[in-house]
Amino acid sequence: MSIKIKILPRLLHFKQPAGTSRGVYTIRKVWYILLSNAANPELYGYGECAPLPDLSCDALPDYEDKLRLFAQKFTERNNFDWEELRNYPSMLFGFETALQHYQRQSLQLWDTPFARGEEGIPINGLIWMGSYEKMYQQIQKKIRKGFRLIKLKIGAIDFEEELRLLTYIREHFSKEQMELRVDANGAFSTTDALSKLERLAQLEIHSIEQPIKAGQWKEMARLTAQTPLPIALDEELIGINTLDEKKALLDMIRPQYIILKPSLHGGIVGCEEWIKEAEARNIGWWITSALESNIGLNAIAQWTATLHPTLPQGLGTGMLFEDNIEIPLEIREDQLWFNPNKPDTICIDS
């Protein structure tokens, strides 16, 4: 198998500004990996490398140079050494999914009921950070679309106003009718986190992501031991790339859940390590995309379907960009579906 590789940088534009704890995104830079057969260019595979600025452990100034170096090594060896890429999770994810696409020659990257269009993957409805009015409008829209689990990013406006939004939902929908997740993105201080968790628990919240900033293992372990509602780790997992580090973190903090994003948390192979170690400790998990375009989102969804998840996943970000790549993913009510009857190709100007 003689493979050629092209690296295709692209700048994507959000349809609407995406508010996060690290500011507001209006553009998104990604790098597509194109593998093609040297003798037959019609045999190809795409992967997506999409590090998040100020968040990914491999969001480096010389990112593209390193990516091209790994691509050169790939072509020289005709394969890649994933251990060599362990500290570059977004690059690893791009290479391993490009290779999976190349080997399958189909966007149905694994053979599952999801890939065959027989089953959807339940997802949460994401409410972006913003003013009270804008968040309220988003909530109304998600409810009308039929979502039964809503995730709110909190920490950007006054906590009392955020509680009002959550209270509004609870006044109209019971826990059985509508589940709520919140993502604090480390916004709480170590001194007020527990009291805020207690107030949130009164609203029967499913879970809270990353209540305090990452890197405070002792404080986080204290919170997970005392919390009145489940805590899920997200940013805490970034940069924890070796198996021994993963075991040490889970043993010390003992979270109720972990949230896995292949671009951030070790690619698919690294996330599978996290899942194995979490399940050995009775820790729950779910999968989330990290603002990838549809190429990355499809790869995450296709892989997620192989895991037979029991909880709604965070895979509803495929409609964010004005200039996204056409892929047969569809959101129907509160599920992500793959439509195998649509074209099974990717068109990118290389």
Rank of each mutant, 00 (worst) to 15 (best):
K247A: 14
T224I: 04
W31V: 00
Q210H: 02
L311S: 06
E209I: 01
I253T: 10
L109H: 01
E133Q: 14
E333R: 15
L229G: 10
G316S: 15
I240L: 15
G19N: 08
F338T: 00
L233E: 07
H172L: 13
S293Q: 06
A214E: 01
T317F: 09
I268L: 15
I33H: 08
L233Y: 03
I7A: 13
D54Q: 14
G267S: 11
V182S: 07
N341L: 14
Q302T: 02
L99V: 09
I3R: 15
L203W: 05
D62S: 08
E272I: 00
I150V: 12
S56G: 07
D323T: 02
L229H: 11
I143R: 05
G23S: 10
Y102K: 06
G130S: 08
E160I: 10
E118F: 06
I327H: 10
G45I: 03
A193M: 08
L8Y: 01
E64T: 03
E84P: 02
L223V: 04
S293N: 08
D234Q: 01
G296N: 08
P53C: 07
K213L: 15
Q226D: 15
L12Q: 09
E330W: 04
G284T: 05
N124K: 04
G270E: 10
Q72I: 00
I331Y: 13
L35K: 05
P312W: 03
K6S: 14
L107A: 11
L52Y: 14
W128F: 14
G314I: 07
G94S: 09
G117Q: 14
R68I: 06
I157D: 11
E48Q: 10
D81R: 06
E209P: 00
W337G: 04
E204Q: 15
L260C: 05
L311Y: 03
E273L: 11
G318Q: 12
Q100N: 08
Q256M: 08
Q138H: 05
E279L: 13
L163I: 15
I212G: 10
L85G: 04
T345Q: 14
L107V: 04
G117L: 13
S289E: 15
K196F: 00
A305W: 12
I295Y: 09
F80D: 12
F173V: 00
L126N: 06
L163Q: 13
F70T: 02
H172I: 02
I169R: 07
P17L: 05
K175I: 00
K246V: 02
P122F: 02
E133C: 00
T310N: 12
